[in-house]
């Protein structure tokens, strides 16, 4: 393996190369002080380089002689049985769950976008509440991370949705059981609220920082089963002159989120805004952040108005066909669409 392929900074790499080190083996038997002298760098830095080198050397050694030694490789057969065991997080709306085959998938990044007022934040809060439904009642019994960049998270609304969710569970029981259940501690809306970890983000630097911090946070909070970012776009749509730089930052961030989703087996839900795009002589509404961002989510759901009804449309998914389903936003949260739920027009 060559030095150029090591995860070290560009300046370190060029120093190594100009000092005549090109392969791992040329570095393997060096002492840190020797390297520090050769490269004219701090001892600490030399130590870090050598650590990276020895890690890489260990990895390439461990594969010798074992053909199955590629780390993290799974066969599709194993993954299939794993996928069939997988629980999904319900959205609260049966029609929507149906087209999503059970709800939002864990281990994947799902992007939800739509015009203002369509119910993106509502869906975000609903998911943060629904993930906490105990396993016995068909949920995950998990916790939620809510990253709020716009300041649109309303705690009263979360309380209300939690109440709606509790009542939904209670509806399945007889009066007698209901009384017993209602006294239990987890059945209080406040306990639902205590399991939502809320981060308020005020700039894109903070957003990058929190994405990096999540890895550590999720190690300490193993129960977290969903991460909602509301919205991923907000800070990136303003104060950004260098679009190439924005693309780089965003694609790096999306890879981190992908990794979080896979390693911790949790659902990442990104809420996105819409923008207009000029194609073939007319303007279309499309999700913000451009074409390259559209590759950075596993699934994409677009929320839109159809006449007076709200609809969700699966725009992109590796496993699901495109389909759309109506839903409505009620005081209890996201529910099936009913005919009397009309859009209130404020004219």
């Amino acid at each position: 393996m060559e030095i150029a392929n090591l995860p070290i900074s560009a300046s370190q790499r060029s120093k190594l190369l100009s000092a005549g080190y090109a392969t791992l083996s040329s570095l393997s038997s060096l002492s840190p002080s020797h390297l520090a002298r050769d490269l004219n760098i701090e001892l600490q830095e030399a130590l870090e380089i050598l650590k990276v080198v020895s890690d890489a050397a260990d990895r390439s050694k461990s594969t010798d002689g074992h053909h199955q030694a590629l780390k993290g490789v799974q066969t599709a057969w194993d993954m299939l049985s794993e996928e069939q065991m997988q629980q999904h997080i319900t959205t609260g709306c049966e029609d929507l769950d149906h087209i999503l085959r059970g709800g939002i998938h864990c281990g994947e990044v799902t992007e939800v976008g739509g015009v203002p007022g369509i119910g993106k934040t509502q869906l975000g809060i609903q998911l943060a509440v629904n993930v906490q439904i105990p396993v016995e009642y068909g949920g995950h019994g998990g916790q939620a991370v809510y990253i709020d960049t716009e300041g649109s998270f309303m705690v009263e609304r979360a309380h209300q949705i939690a109440e709606g969710c509790i009542n939904g569970i209670l509806d399945n029981f007889t009066d007698h059981d209901r009384k017993i259940l209602a006294c239990q501690e987890w059945m209080q809306p406040n306990s639902f609220l205590s399991n939502i970890f809320y981060f308020r983000i005020c700039s894109y630097t903070e957003q990058i920082a929190v994405t990096n911090y999540l890895e550590k946070f999720l190690k300490e909070h193993k129960d977290v089963k969903i991460v909602v970012i509301d919205s991923v776009t907000f800070h990136f749509r303003q104060d950004f002159d260098d679009l190439a730089c924005r693309t780089r930052i965003l694609s790096g961030m999306s890879l981190k989120l992908m990794k979080l989703a896979k390693t911790n087996n949790l659902a990442v839900v990104l809420l996105n805004q819409v923008t207009t795009k000029y194609t073939e002589g007319s303007f279309h509404l499309t999700l913000a952040l451009g074409d390259s961002w559209s590759h950075s989510c596993t699934n994409r759901i677009i929320l839109y108005w159809n006449a007076n009804e709200r609809y969700a449309y699966i725009d992109k998914s590796p496993s699901l066909p495109s389909a759309s389903a109506p839903y409505s936003v009620t005081s209890k949260g996201i529910r099936n669409s009913t005919s009397h739920c009309k859009r209130v027009r404020m004219m």
Binding site: A76, W77, L80, Q84, M258, H295, P318, S319
Partner: peptide, 11 residues
């Protein structure tokens, strides 16, 4: 790289 490998689909 995109968590898009879907064993279900392949099946």
């Amino acid at each position: 790289t995109c968590n898009s490998f879907s064993p279900n689909r392949i099946a």
